[in-house]
Design a protein around this nucleic acid. Structure first.
Lengths: 205, 205
DNA sequence: GTGATTGGATAGTGTTACTCTCCAATAATA
DNA sequence: TATTATTGGAGAGTAACACTATCCAATCAC
């Protein structure tokens, strides 16, 4: 399969496929001569993954590259690989210095009784999200935090139970599951709100 | 308060405050002369909200404007206001035509027994998220869908129970709650995964 | 009265994600 | 074999975005 066939199979312009090659998002094909390379199904699958990450999940090219590198070359520690994946995912936050750089997140996680590594980017992401809610005049109450925390721990437990045994598959599941399932969760939450609102509305009429 | 004091109070450059004024994200101050206007605490609060939406939640200026317009001028129907808010929030999806434009979402919501309006943007967002997971080779199983759906309905029920009575407050709660609490939920899910992974890791050693 | 600040308009900047153009080398077809 | 089409690779161009800077005459503060 040459590049034009690959582009067609993936439903993308050739120029875009070349761009992804240049950016290192797509592995090069096997060069068969100075001006020809051949591609296969694995390239088509990869392009679909790239489009899913960039188009649907909304990652930047840089973020997608970071995620793909982790999937391609996961290292041996699932724990630290997940850490690096979360750092690559939005929202981008800068790591802070000083004692107690994440007071809201620390308090929240302590209230939930969760263990956490302050280096893990999600801590800074939680801090930023809690600060934004507060700044906008809608702080998260302790009660809401407990409720959210409980439900999301259940959700995480479910995910972890279904993690594949084999290390490489486990990394792919964890990293891509984080990136790909979050939009599903957000959409389902919005729909659950509508479902509940519709029921209330039905009752009120 | 003049513009420079306002900018300082919000921790932003004057040029940026002017930019937000131009873009209609910040309500104009009271003009006291041809070259002077006065601002108050409400402008400071608004700027904090704008920065929360743009900086922390990651909305574009356009999306933030759409959300702020809904909060400022909510109309009388909470249901349709929430619909327009969700349309303004990422991920941006285009509405599709034809019969059964959202097959995956339709099937998923039918399996969950949820009522839904196909015009509601979250349906297209769910379709896109499910398609992305599928394209990337990690489709959402029925079992996972049930689990996610159940937990998120519980979460939505909690949110709805705490909705303020007063209509304007209810709209603000619903629209801003959707925009501001989603990042909290995503961060908490990531942290719940880490918590669970750390516990597993502890057991394995 | 004079230097600083203001609102308002316009233009410029850096980043991002493509998209286009060009080229000589090669492949496909007549 | 001749000729037309396509390729990989490199570079430049583009459109959108979120600011940021500059200018200006009108006003303000001292």
């Amino acid at each position: 399969m040459r590049i034009s066939a690959l582009a067609e199979a993936a439903g993308l312009p050739v120029a875009t496929v070349k761009f992804y090659l240049r950016e290192g998002l797509l592995q090069p094909g096997v060069a068969t001569s100075a001006t020809q390379a051949s591609y296969d199904e694995s390239h088509v699958r990869r392009l679909r993954l790239v489009r899913a990450l960039i188009g649907s999940v909304g990652l930047s090219v840089q973020q997608a590259r970071a995620i793909l590198e982790l999937v391609d070359d996961p290292g041996d520690d699932l724990y630290s690989t997940l850490g690096r994946a979360v750092e690559a995912l939005p929202p981008a936050v800068e790591r802070r210095e000083g004692d107690d750089p994440y007071p809201r997140a620390r308090a929240a996680l302590a209230a939930l009784g969760q263990v956490f590594d302050p280096e893990y980017a999600a801590v800074a992401q939680l801090e930023s999200a809690l600060a934004a809610a507060e700044a906008a005049g809608m702080p998260i109450s302790d009660e809401r935090l407990q409720q959210y925390g409980d439900l999301l721990r259940k959700l995480a437990a479910f995910d972890l139970e279904r993690m594949p045994e084999e290390p490489h598959a486990a990394v792919e599941y964890t990293v891509l599951g984080t990136a790909l399932y979050e939009p599903v969760i957000v959409a389902l939450r919005r729909l659950a709100h509508q479902d509940q609102a519709a029921r209330l509305r039905g009752i009120n009429r």
